[in-house]
Amino acid sequence: MSLSVAVAGASGYAGGELLRILADHPEFTVTTVTAFSNAGQPLIALQPHLRSLAHLTLVETTAANLAGHDVVFLALPHGKSGEITAQLADDTLVIDCGADHRLTSESDWAAFYGGEYFGAWTYGMPELVLADGSRQRESIVGATRIAVPGCNVTAISLGLAPGIRAGVLEPEDIVAVLAVGPSGAGKTLKVNLLASEILGSSYAYGVGGTHRHTPEIRQNLTAAGGVGVTVSFTPMLVPMSRGILATSTARLAPGVSAADVRSAFEIAYADEPFVHLLPAGEYPRTADTVGANTALIGLAVDEVSRRVTTITAIDNLVKGTAGAAIQSANIALGLPEQAGLTTNGVAP
């Protein structure tokens, strides 16, 4: 029996990607799509690539319009989902692709986001290795409220957590620099995201520990077993519509060899359908993950400087957002985890 689905924020990039994947999901049927300023317009006018959903019309984003569905996906700006979800039935599976329910620390929320703190939900990163050796996947089973991780957070966490968990990487002095496509900033018109501003150029933003994903990265690496985690995280906007390439480095723990490091990652991801460690000496391209719910990781160990570098590529709109949301929904509902999702990218 097909499950009824509502997608809030369906006119944006994340909402559109949710709908693209959901359109071919064997167990879900999208029955309601909502928006704020675009309410009343045909979905196809805002998402012209979604031809199979041309029969849908955007309605206003309200709790009343989202109620009564089996699954509700929220692709809303931070601060918007908390007030709506409080009005939805407890037995409805609600998956928030925004930031409102990611952070377990109210003080971190106040420092990096501000406004009302709505509390933390079950965290939707199934592959995150935890300090006790389990995976976050186990907590998702049967959950009815799930918070999807930030896209930058996904790339850094998946690229470092196995090393932290195994004790082969030191949790202090972690540095990550990310090349990020502008679709991660959403569809809202902003001068700095105009093609004439970003084509042929690149620039850093959220510099000096100010990016809102910083506490979430610390939260994940602490959950993986890190004590006293410190992260210097700098995203760089680059002229590609989607994708993240995260270059993350950490110090080798004393007495640890390159073989020890590689073994930790091989063990962590050996059976993961969507996280793939590449052979030694190979490093991923963002182009290899476009359209796929896949994280590709390359690993290098510099035994002279005693630092490890991981290169992680994801599609920020799939593994970084919509794919993670649907993967988590599958797990929560007891469906096959890979249902509706692909590991194959789009090339060229």
Rank of each mutant, 00 (worst) to 15 (best):
T57A: 10
R218W: 09
S52T: 15
S202Q: 15
D91N: 14
G119M: 01
G323I: 08
L53G: 00
L58W: 06
G291T: 00
Y13F: 15
G114A: 07
L252A: 11
A120W: 06
L317M: 12
L252M: 11
L335M: 12
P336S: 10
P171M: 09
A204K: 12
G281M: 01
D70W: 04
V346N: 11
E17P: 05
T29L: 12
K187D: 14
L189H: 13
L46A: 10
I326L: 08
D108A: 12
G40E: 01
G68P: 03
L245T: 04
A313K: 04
D271C: 09
T92L: 03
S105W: 01
A258S: 14
Q327M: 12
D271G: 09
L160K: 07
L237G: 07
A195Q: 14
E303G: 09
L50P: 04
A111F: 05
L193Y: 12
G133S: 10
L333S: 03
A35R: 04
R102Y: 04
V168N: 00
V168D: 05
L278W: 04
F112H: 10
L53Q: 08
V59W: 01
S52N: 14
R242Q: 15
G159H: 03
R307D: 08
D271N: 13
A268V: 02
D108E: 12
A324Q: 05
D315R: 03
P149L: 06
P77N: 02
T34V: 11
R251W: 09
L237K: 02
N293L: 05
C151R: 05
G79E: 07
A86F: 02
P239N: 09
V141N: 08
A322T: 01
L22T: 03
S157D: 09
V72C: 06
G184L: 10
I331R: 05
E337G: 08
S81I: 00
L189Q: 14
R135N: 08
A264P: 04
S105P: 00
A63Y: 02
R145K: 10
D108Q: 08
R251L: 11
E127D: 15
E116R: 13
P42C: 05
T34G: 09
H101E: 09
D24A: 14
L3I: 06
G291D: 06
R251N: 11
I311R: 07
A64H: 13
P348N: 13
F36Q: 13
I174D: 05
I198S: 01
G119V: 02
A131D: 12
F233H: 11
L296F: 08
A204P: 10
G291N: 06
A347R: 14
Q136D: 09
A67E: 09
S305F: 10
T230S: 15
L18V: 01
L160P: 02
E266N: 15
V175H: 13
L277I: 10
H69E: 00
V231T: 03
A54V: 07
L194Q: 15
N65I: 07
I174P: 00
P348S: 13
G184C: 11
L299H: 00
G9C: 00
P26Y: 06
K190L: 15
S305E: 14
